[in-house]
Amino acid sequence: MAYHFDFTFVPDYAGMLAQGVAYTLGLTVVGGTLGILIGIGGAVSRTWNVRPFGPLYGYYVELFRNTPFLVQLFLIFFGLPSLGIKLAEWQAAILAMVLNLGAYSTEIIRAGLQATPRGQVEAADSLAFTRWQVFLHVMLRPALRKVWPALSSQVVITMLGSSVCSQISAEELTFVANFIQSRNFRAFETYFLTTAMYFGLALLVRQAMHAIGRHLIVRRPSR
């Protein structure tokens, strides 16, 4: 028997869907920005083993890369209140995403820093740069440039992973989809549409990362 697609429900929920998309994008922008900043800090600390941050970052990275995102989210949302830290669902969602992306981007950016040719660091050393100046002016931009594609992918993965935040009732796109299909029982259509929307979002995030990356890469006049 042929299945009859029925998308007539869409206009009724257009507003909700738009809100879900905005929520997901918000999580991604905030989580991505803070996550990458944490990653830069982690990469520096681990590369030079800055005490006490280097070793601490080491534990943090291993912990968050070797446990499921959902469990991390539950630990933050359901676990932390036991310590008196009570977070709203959106706060927990952002915190989990930041910590998760921070751990992965620490290792990605560290790889970029380690790929700095020794000669460039020596050149900066010989010009009397401090270690921090070498990092900031000589290593960081070329390192980010090298790993930007990998970092972009990780941001997209984190964005897709944010669907898990529906489990703590953060009202992002998957939460909205669950809500809609529980009302209209058109599971196939609802999740088909959601799939398409996530796909579109992923392309959008990738494009945005690409555009940001272009600013890291110096544009030069043609010869």
């Binding site: 000669g119 460039q120 020596e122 050149a123 900066a124 010989s126 010009l127 070329p142 110096v218």
Partner: peptide, 20 residues
């Protein structure tokens, strides 16, 4: 750094900063 401010160095492999 005090010493290096007085001593310049040029390397075999140039070692220019590629992003500048």
């Amino acid at each position: 750094r005090n010493l290096r401010q007085k001593v310049g160095m040029v390397f075999q492999q140039f070692n220019l900063f590629p992003h500048l």
